[in-house]
């Protein structure tokens, strides 16, 4: 646990510092520093900063995905070539050819997961900051760059009479608070809806026919129905501040996806067709889409071991 905390600490500091700066900025512009709206806007500002900073990562991820899609036919050819050859040398030869293939398409399954990993500490830090406000306020401690006073102010801040640090589940019984319940429900619905729309958009418009038939698609469909459940369960447990963050980031994802579908659709998808038609209507020349296979005849690139003597095959031992 301590080790985990040590890793998270700098991220938490950065995240809380950005939020604090936004809060200072809004106060400077004349907003009430103790108002819940100032803090809500600070959270929104934080989301905007983080998501904007992650755009290059997102683009890299799309590129990797498109690359993986583009090399599927080649990969199948390769699997066909080595079908039934199970001896170690053939497996090695296949692995080598596969690696050369990834390189040719500028992608690598082991590189594609990096963008996801990079985001993890940020989101986790953010979550612990927003989620820990209540306790830190009680204990009078600071969180990252937020001073104890700021923490208390944040903890006391309300919107529509709902404290930012209160949760749906904690607002029943003795400390019944209708506005917390209503706000939570609204945000859970908004979160789920934006997530659902994003996924639906991707599946309906931005997938090539090839990808539609892959087993990956089934997984996507399952996700479509599981994620709302996750939001629902998470939503009733998390404070309003976390929900604000979550809703904003989901809406950002939706907007980003809309942009991608409109301006850089997946080759071979309905969105790509619509994109080409729009361009044709305006009399613009067609453009190469991100991750599109080049139409020029493919040169047979059998990877030659560069500058390496050919190793003799191991001879079968006589029995």
């Amino acid at each position: 646990m301590d080790f985990f905390e040590t890793i998270l600490a700098p991220f938490r500091w950065l995240v809380s510092w950005i939020m604090f700066m936004f809060h200072e900025g809004f106060t400077f512009l004349g907003m009430d520093p103790a108002s819940g709206w100032t803090w809500v806007l600070s959270i929104v500002g934080l989301v905007v900063v983080i998501r904007a900073a992650l755009i290059p990562v997102f683009v890299k991820q799309i590129k990797a995905q498109r690359g993986m899609q583009a090399l599927q036919p080649d990969l199948r050819k390769l699997q066909q070539k080595y079908k039934g050859k199970t001896d170690q040398l053939s497996r090695q030869a296949m692995t080598q050819e596969q690696m050369a293939l990834y390189k040719k398409h500028g992608t690598n399954p082991f590189a594609a997961c990096l963008p996801i990993l990079i985001q993890m500490p940020f989101f986790f830090a953010l979550f612990t900051v927003l989620n820990g406000i209540s306790r830190a306020s009680e204990e009078g401690t600071e969180i990252g760059a937020l001073s104890p006073e700021s923490v208390r102010q944040f903890d006391d801040a309300t919107i529509f009479g709902a404290p930012l640090s209160s949760t749906f589940l904690g607002s029943f019984g003795a400390n019944w608070n209708a506005s917390v319940v209503i706000l939570s429900v609204i945000m859970i619905i908004a979160m789920t809806a934006s997530q659902f729309i994003t996924q639906k958009q991707i599946m309906a418009k931005n997938m090539s026919e090839e990808a539609m038939q892959s087993p990956f698609m089934r997984q996507q469909k399952i996700m479509l129905y599981i994620l709302p459940l996750v939001f629902g369960i998470g939503g009733i447990n998390f404070p309003i501040g976390v929900l604000v963050y979550w809703t904003t980031t989901n809406i950002w994802t939706m907007a980003q996806q809309f942009y991608v579908i409109r301006r850089m659709p997946t080759p071979g998808s309905p969105a790509a067709k619509a994109f080409a038609e729009r361009r044709a209507k305006k009399g613009l020349p067609t453009v190469q889409l991100l991750g599109e296979r080049k139409t020029e005849p493919a040169i047979e690139a059998v990877p030659e071991p560069r500058g390496q003597r050919v190793q003799p095959r191991k001879k079968r031992k006589k029995r």
Partner: peptide, 26 residues
Amino acid sequence: PDGKTPSIVVLNHPVIPADDESRPAA
């Protein structure tokens, strides 16, 4: 010496079969 190449060297430099050796698509 011939036939005594360490197996790691052999495994790291597999002979890539030519593409026309591939079986016809089933």
